[in-house]
Amino acid sequence: MSGTTGAWEGEGYTLSPEQNRVVTERWERAAAARQDMDAMMKGVQQETAQSHGGRLEGLEYSLKGLDSFRRKAATAAVVGNVPVEKTARKVNDLNRYTLTFDPDSYSQGVERTYERLRHSGYEPISEKNTWQDPVYKGINTSWQHTESAEKFELQFHTPDSFKAKMENHELYELSRGNALADLAEGNEELAQSYRDAANQLQNERYKNVEVPPGQEKIGEQLVRDKLNPRVPLDHVELIRQKEAEKRAENLGHAQAPVLGQVEQATLQADGPGQAKTNDLRNRLATRPAVELPRQKTATPGIEQFPQQSRSRGPSLG
């Protein structure tokens, strides 16, 4: 286990040494279970691939980052007055997975996955179906082993809904934290308008995502967000700008470890090695950020809409 753990601070939140110890030890148990869970989910993927075209996405993110979990626990303690010990006990998404199926085989693929997991000793403890939600579409489930009590989250998507979710990652990050409240400088009405703008932009990427037939029979149907058709256009454009800035920031964080590894490897190298390092630095520095197609913003007052280690998106449990 972690042994002595000090206090933690990040993104304006803090954990005391004792709170951090509780959170860290819970995360370490999930880390220890990761290898076996990954192997189990690879088996599920192989079976459903043959029968329904299932694909396991983002396996490299199957363990939630420790700092992400710390932030989640600290946020729950401040915003929801939820004791850190309760968050550590009830958390379901430290180990997390995503399966995708094409729309025509989606519902049957989900049902076959249920059968396979139950055969392995797991039972669903949460089933949230948000295919009718305008901001996030998919099915999020949580599972617990009947004997070991191990828990994990499993999201079911189509390729298109998974793509939209990943493209919305920065908007999800902005909406879940204090960024929009800070941007509004304490004006709650303005902060809500910024959240409405983020919802509208997220919805744009789901507009053409096909809803799989038969999905309505699976899980609890939830609509968690509503769109505000009257959100000012300048608020939409501001949030679009903040999304682009957040994406550039995330890209920079992703590139930093690559540069660090290359530079470490060439510390003892002479000219050629240093030249390669400088070449990589230059290529990464000039690499353009990924740009998504700019979509036309709806005219205010006219309803045009049916409402995220790297986060994988909302956990609905």
Rank of each mutant, 00 (worst) to 15 (best):
R224M: 11
G43F: 14
E28S: 15
S107G: 05
K163H: 03
A184C: 02
R281C: 07
D225H: 11
D225C: 06
R205M: 04
T113R: 06
K217T: 08
R176Y: 10
T87D: 04
A7G: 09
Q200P: 02
T297V: 10
F101P: 00
F69I: 12
E115V: 07
E127D: 12
F69G: 06
Q200Y: 08
Q241P: 01
L15F: 06
S148G: 04
K42L: 14
S315M: 13
H235Q: 12
E185N: 15
E220H: 03
D67M: 07
T100I: 08
L99G: 01
A74D: 00
I302D: 03
V135C: 04
D160Y: 02
A256W: 02
N92S: 11
Q308P: 10
A88E: 04
E204L: 15
Q202M: 13
E185F: 11
G271I: 12
Q200W: 11
V262T: 14
E47R: 15
Q35A: 13
S107K: 00
P134E: 00
E85Q: 09
S107F: 01
E291T: 01
T98P: 00
A191Y: 06
A73F: 07
G214H: 09
H253Y: 03
S126I: 04
P83N: 07
R224Q: 10
T277V: 15
L284V: 07
Y61C: 03
R89T: 12
K165P: 01
E147N: 01
T266S: 13
F162V: 00
G138Q: 06
S126P: 00
A285M: 13
M1L: 10
K276P: 07
V91L: 07
E243F: 06
E167V: 03
T87I: 13
D93S: 11
T299N: 04
G271K: 12
H52L: 04
A30L: 06
H157G: 02
K246Y: 13
V223M: 03
K137N: 01
E47P: 05
H145W: 00
P232A: 09
Y114R: 08
Q192W: 00
A164Y: 06
A74V: 01
